[in-house]
Structure formats: C-alpha cells, structure tokens
Design a protein around this nucleic acid. Sequence first.
DNA 1: AGCCAGTTCTACAACGTTGCAATAACCTTT
DNA 2: AAAGGTTATTGCAACGTTGTAGAACTGGCT
Lengths: 380, 380
Amino acid sequence: MPLHPASGRKRPPALRDVAELAGVSIKTVSNVVNDYPHVKDSTRETVREAILQVGYRPQAAAQQLRTGASKMITLAVPALTFSYFSDLAQQFIDEAQRRGQTVVLHSTSGGREAERTVLEGFNRVVGDGVIFNPLLIEEEVFARMEQTTQPTVFIGEHLPEKLPHGSDYVRIDNAAAAFDATTHLLESGRRRIAFLGAIATKHGLQPHSSGSLRRDGYVAALEEHGVEPDAGLVQAVDDWHRHDGFTGAQDLMARHPDLDAIVCGNDDLAIGVLAHLRRLGRRVPQDIAVIGYDDTPDAPFASPPLSTISPDKHALAATALDLLTERIQGFDGPPRIADTPYSLVIRESTDRAAGDHAPTTPSSTAPTAPTAPCLEELPR
Amino acid sequence: MPLHPASGRKRPPALRDVAELAGVSIKTVSNVVNDYPHVKDSTRETVREAILQVGYRPQAAAQQLRTGASKMITLAVPALTFSYFSDLAQQFIDEAQRRGQTVVLHSTSGGREAERTVLEGFNRVVGDGVIFNPLLIEEEVFARMEQTTQPTVFIGEHLPEKLPHGSDYVRIDNAAAAFDATTHLLESGRRRIAFLGAIATKHGLQPHSSGSLRRDGYVAALEEHGVEPDAGLVQAVDDWHRHDGFTGAQDLMARHPDLDAIVCGNDDLAIGVLAHLRRLGRRVPQDIAVIGYDDTPDAPFASPPLSTISPDKHALAATALDLLTERIQGFDGPPRIADTPYSLVIRESTDRAAGDHAPTTPSSTAPTAPTAPCLEELPR
DNA sequence: AGCCAGTTCTACAACGTTGCAATAACCTTT
DNA sequence: AAAGGTTATTGCAACGTTGTAGAACTGGCT
C-alpha cells in the first residue's frame, strides 16, 4: 500500500507498478497503453495482463502535464434549472463524448461575479478551453479584454461589439427568429401583439441581452406589416422563469385586455403566460395566441401545445466544439462569428384552426426517447 | 512565446515565469500564491504584481500530480433532459462550488455500456471521486465488484444487495414515499387507483429500479387500507418521459375507464397523463386525481398544478458530497447507507376541493427566482 | 562578540507521463 | 561472417507544482 508522498493517501497504480510486475520498462508499458505499433505480441500480452492485474488506469493529470492537453473542456452556463440550458448542456456533453472529450460544468447561476470569474479564466487552469454562455456580464468588461487567457467560444446572445482576441462566437440570429415568430402571428391575422421578456431588473437594462434582440425582431416585424409598435405592449420581467411569465401576463392583461397575441422571450415565460390566461378564462388560441422561444421539452406538452422558435441546439453545440477545437489546436486567427439555424415550430397555441387538424409530433430531444407513436393534437 | 516541448503549442505562464520577472525563487512565488505566512510584505507585493503582469494561473494538472488531489469530482447521471436530473446536477454543482470543488459531468444517456464504463472507473483517472446514479446496470455487475477503484458514492434507487467496498449509498426511501402518496389518495376517498411507471423495456424488467420500489409502496398502501391490489392497474411504460405518460394513460384509460386516481412514477409521466386526460375531457381532480414524483419545476405550473413527492435534492447532494469527501480524505470503513428526507406536496391535481381555496405557492427551485409574489391557484 | 530564536527565502526532489534519441535484438542480404 | 536494415525495447529528461529541509538573514539577548 504505497502512500502518496505529499498527502499520505493510498497511491493508485502507475505505469511503474505495471512495469515491475510485467518485468519490462516503464516506457514499454506506456507504448502498450498507447498502441504504439512496434511492440512484440507476446510482450503486449504480458503487459496487458499486468495492467488488468494491478488495475492500472492512466492519470489524466500526468498526461496533461506532459502533453499540455487534457481532453477536457469547460462549459459555463447560467443554470441547469432553465430547461433550455440543461438541454443544451446535454448536447454539449454528448457531442464532446463523441469527440473523446470530457465536460467540466460550471454554473454561473446568473451571478455577475461568477461570470466574471469565468471570463478571467477561473482561478486555475483546468481543461483545454472554455465554452461560455454569459448572461449578465457588462459589455465594458468584454471591451477591456484585449485577449482571452485560454481558447474560448462564446455562445448565446450577449454579443459584445468586439470579441477578445483568441475567441469565437456562435449565435442564433435572435432578431430574425423573433421577426419570423411575429410575422407568423401577423399573417394569421393578429394585430394587438404584445412582447413579454425585456429584462429590466435591479441590475439595469441589458442592451445586448437576448430579450432586447428578440424585442427588436418583434418591432421590426410589426413595422414591416404596417402595424404601429406600441411601447406599452412591451412588458419587462425580472427574470425568465415560468413564474415571471405568470406575473408578466397579469400586468399585461390588466393594462391591455384587448390583446390578441403575446410573443414571449422564452418557453418558460410562455408557459407561465398560458397558466395566467387559463385562469382568466381566455381561450388559446381562439381569443389570444401565444408563442415561445427555445422549444423546450415542455413545449409540446403545454396546454395548449406551444408554438415556438426551435433553435438547432445540436448544431450549436457541434459548431462551438469545432471552433474551440481549432483554437485548441493552435488556430490563432481573428475572432469568428458563426450563425446557427433555427426553425419556427407551429403548434396549437397560435393556430386558430386548432382542434380540427394539427397532427403535431412533439419534437422530443431526449436521447433515449423512442421515435414516438405520438400524441397528435391535444385539446386545450 | 515559449512552446510546449511535447505539443509545440504556446505554453501558459508558470511559476517560473513569475519568479524570473520578480527576481525571486520559484518556491517563493508558490508561497505567495498559497498564502504562506512567512513572506516579507514587500516581497509579497512584488510577486503579486508580477503574477498579474504575466497573467499567471496555477495549473490544476500539476497541482494534482504533486498533491494527489484535484478538487474535482465526477458526477454521472443518466441524462440532463430529465428535469429531475438537471435539477439534481445543479444542486451538486452549487454545493460543490461552495466546497471549492469542480464538477465533471458524465452522462450515461441511459446506456448500459456507458454505465459500466463509469463503474469500472472510466478509462482514465480524472478527479478525486465519483458520484454515480445508475439506472440500468445489472445487479450482478455490482455483485462482482469486490471494491471500487476510486471513492464512489451511489445515489438513486438502484440498490444492489451489497455495495462494493469503498463506496457509499445515498437514497430516498422510494417505497415509503410512494406509500405516502398513495395513502394521501386513499384518505381523500379514491379507491380505483392505478400505478403508472413500472419499467418493462427491451432491456427487461428492472428489479431494483425506482419504478419497482415505488410500485411496492403503492401496493403496500392499498393493502394497508383494505383495497385489493389489481395487477391490471399497474401500467408498464417504455421510458419515463412525458410522452410515455401520455401513451401510458391512453392504455390505462382504455382498459379501465373507471379509474379515480393515478400514481405516476415521476412528474414527467404525470404531465403526459394530464395531457391525455385533458384530451379525454376528464376533469382533474374532480373526476380523477393524479400525483407525480420528483417535484420538478414544471409541477406547480402544470394544469392543474401537480401534487407530487418532493425529494430533498439539496440534502441529497450535500450528504453525497459529505460522504464522498470523507472517502477521499481516507475513510476506509465499510459501505454506508444514508436516507434522505422527502415530503408530500399537495397541489390541485389531487385536491377535490380545488378552485375554492388552495393558495399554493409553487416551490420554485430556480436559484435566481425571487421569493414569489406568486400565483395562488390556477384554474384547470 | 557570540548565541539563540525567529523570520524569510531557497535548493532539491518527486508526483506519472511521454517525446526523443539511443541501444539492443533480430532478421536479411552479401 | 560481417554489414546493413528493420523491429523491439529502454534511459533520460522535462512538463509545473509543492513538502521537506535547510540556508541566509534579522534582531535581541547575554
């Protein structure tokens, strides 16, 4: 029972222990482990046995120290309690696993300090690069950064004017998506359309947050269709949880009982909105339409099933990992920006003819879910 | 621009670089970084400046190699697309962050192979210990394991007869919780109570899965109240997603239109069930009661708000980390089993008098959610 | 001056791994 | 039987860090 010199704890088996047992050099064992071709078959066999016998497994730390690469990447998102981020995290984990990488997960829990820590490279180096979805961090903090301290890919909507050197950015064109969502409502005849989701918090308004971008798309669509935007129809919320949707709808409906549609900043908000409308006795979609954003797993099971913008999370994850990998492998060009596709998913919550047809397949993103004998339409 | 000898990539600043700039020894810099007390104030200052100037950050890998500890722990769960697991993961991340630890997240995505990989210690050592929530792994695989290859804490319900040496187990008494849930229904006068959630898949039935334990509690409660359990009222499902709840309810209601309550294996299933009942025009809770398990963030926003078993996820995470930390610090006693509390949360879906009172506060688990000016009751 | 007790700083070694270069063993071919 | 080539194996050094032990100072006391 060998002890670690510094800690006094049991030391896990190392190459040395295998080598001793197999009667070969440490390097030979290393060669076997790494499938180096020039090893005699008989030796390889002996070593393999010894490995099993002592239960050897390579120490990632030593490999990283020696090779300079850890095959680990850090993913920093606000909080897994948002279904959008837990879905997204799952995509990253799967995609990384496919590439032989391991994901270290950091949650900034929406705290500005936590985000700054991420941006400044944490307090220690762990992993080869970072994928970071900021929410709150101020633009000026970005601006001050001349360059990143390790390969970094930003995701999300918090676009700074100028990315730090050494970083890339993968986004979804939020304004365009919100434009499409709003256009869909306009084309189905809605005219009094509210927007729920501008963030006005104790922290002050976020100029580049997804809320503002989506609102811009909403406004643009109205203008394009000759509908005068009304600032009173843009409802601020404290946060983007279901709960905020509920109270937001409360405010909105009290002030504007004549609304015939609400564009929501995300699905969680929309689900809260639906809950309030149900309470008011407003029928969705007959009296009022509701559309969300994110296509969370809840959306098809909301009552009624929720129309929404469905970002291609898989493409987002894959693209971000591609860019990050290039950075890790030494690419040192200027910051790149990649746009990722999205689609408009129309379900019952915006479909006036609902209940008559609409065989919508809920798009399940769960990896193990069967391909769905599925749920056609759900009554409200 | 120093290159890494083995990879040819840029080498991040190390203690050496700081030492050179500050004109002191490497060890002195190390002492400053680690707040060793016997350092002259002036020296400390010089070194601090040099650290900032070169942008030094400690390399976790080298620390781990030297000290034998990485301050990282691995969390392996089936999939973050289940709200239960994303909530739980968030709890672990927060709690670990509070203890200065970082979480490496593995997703087994329900695959048996992936789970076996976790159990066998992955292919390389990363982090100081593992928290593992198995779903599918066979009991015999556990039984064969004499001892774990690194400190391990199991969570979840898949209790093997005998834990491997070096591991602990934190669980929630599933049978008791399901017993309580069922008793609640019985006491409010329900008699034709079905159970949805036994897993019967291509993989075969899972003897120790949470589904079976919960079913056992359900059966026990019926017996205790003199209600004859009816095997026909136990409905198997392929998986535990909302979708499966929908189709499961379909089967169940077709065969037993007279049901007056359904106990669901988890909240996602229950939400699917609610969707189907709405479609059938059954009123919940007047005609039929539905109760879930997990208290996911959706539950209070379901229509109607869902009664459920609320496991104390925070206690679960904290306990698991406590036990794991003890193992990491050298505790080598026999396997321990810890039970974690749960509570029965009664919302509208099981409350016959619903709509009249019931000022239920949705228990939001989101870290940033305000303490709720809240949603009283929601109409169905 | 000489000595001790503290404080401040440093040299060394080792953690487990792998790239490099060198050696040793083995076959061919002359 | 020696030269040349290929295959198999190995020793060395270094990645960045920190525990240990000890050296070099400082100041206060006899």
